[in-house]
Amino acid sequence: MAARGFLLAGAVVLMGAAAPPPGAASCSGCHGAANPDGIPPIAGRPVADLAAALNGFRDGSRKATLMDRLAKGFTPAELQAIAAWWSEQP
């Protein structure tokens, strides 16, 4: 995604970071730093791993407590975009 800086009506407006795709901003409510026995971190993990997990939750092939219920609210393309964005987060 392009850097969020552009020229508009004579004013330079600098945005902080690439805007997350729909739904991605919610994830950090649960997925933060690692903590023992806790919800796993997702930031910076390989996009293939994240996409495989999300698609597995969506189609039921991967065991879940809760993520199966959330992944079903997205199309595979939307899950791919979420995986790609999170893989690039620090």
Partner: peptide, 15 residues
């Protein structure tokens, strides 16, 4: 899920 609840609380309050 009880452990995840505790994990969620730590994460969301940190954010």
């Amino acid at each position: 899920e009880a452990r995840y609840a505790e994990s969620w609380f730590k994460t969301i309050t940190a954010e």
